[in-house]
């Protein structure tokens, strides 16, 4: 299978990749770009641990051929904030104890970010509905929902 050049934007930076058509976005992000935020959970679309934003919309990197992302803008959790400047959602997850093992957290954060972009003040029910595909084996969801509900928006 021939490799081909793919140009895309990842966390605001232009990237050029020389990849095979059967390479998954998830593995390209992790193995080629060293972005370990998106996780491999099931590989079948069931868990959303691999969630990234494509042009601001949550999608599952385990079911995306990286070649189809030519010209698109990808955001991983690394693009949300870092240790010195946490995104308000990241801060809220910490404040509310919404992280245990952390495996689901990148997907939760990105999905929640997309929700807040569409709906800045969602109800608990709206939060649960929007995040319903993001599985968490640890927290029981209550703290996560609270963290999203009570996020302090940047002034």
């Amino acid at each position: 299978m021939e490799r081909q050049w793919v140009k895309l934007k990842v966390n605001g930076k232009e990237r050029q990749l020389f990849i095979k058509p059967n390479e998954l976005l998830l593995n390209v992000l992790r193995d080629e770009l060293g972005l370990m935020g998106a996780k491999y959970g099931c590989g079948l679309g069931e868990c959303a641990a691999c969630t990234v934003l494509v042009n601001g919309q949550p999608m599952l990197a385990c079911l995306i051929l990286a070649v189809t992302m030519e010209g698109q803008e990808i955001t991983t959790v690394e693009g949300m904030g870092d240790y010195d400047r946490l995104h308000p959602l990241q801060q809220s997850f910490l404040d509310h104890g919404a992280v245990q093992c952390g495996f689901c957290t990148p997907g939760m954060l990105l999905t929640a970010q997309a929700l807040l972009a569409e709906n800045p003040d969602p109800s608990e029910e709206e939060i649960r509905d929007y995040l319903r595909g993001n599985l968490c084996r640890c927290t029981g969801y209550a703290a996560i929902v609270r963290a999203v509900k009570e996020v302090k928006h940047p002034a």
Binding site: M1, Q4, P21, N22, E23, L24, N27, Y40, C42, G43, L44, C62, L65, V67, T68, E70
Partner: peptide
């Protein structure tokens, strides 16, 4: 099946 990768090979036409 290893769902971590897509093992199948194919020609990609966009």
């Amino acid at each position: 099946t290893d769902t971590r990768v897509l093992a199948a090979e194919f020609q990609y036409l966009e």
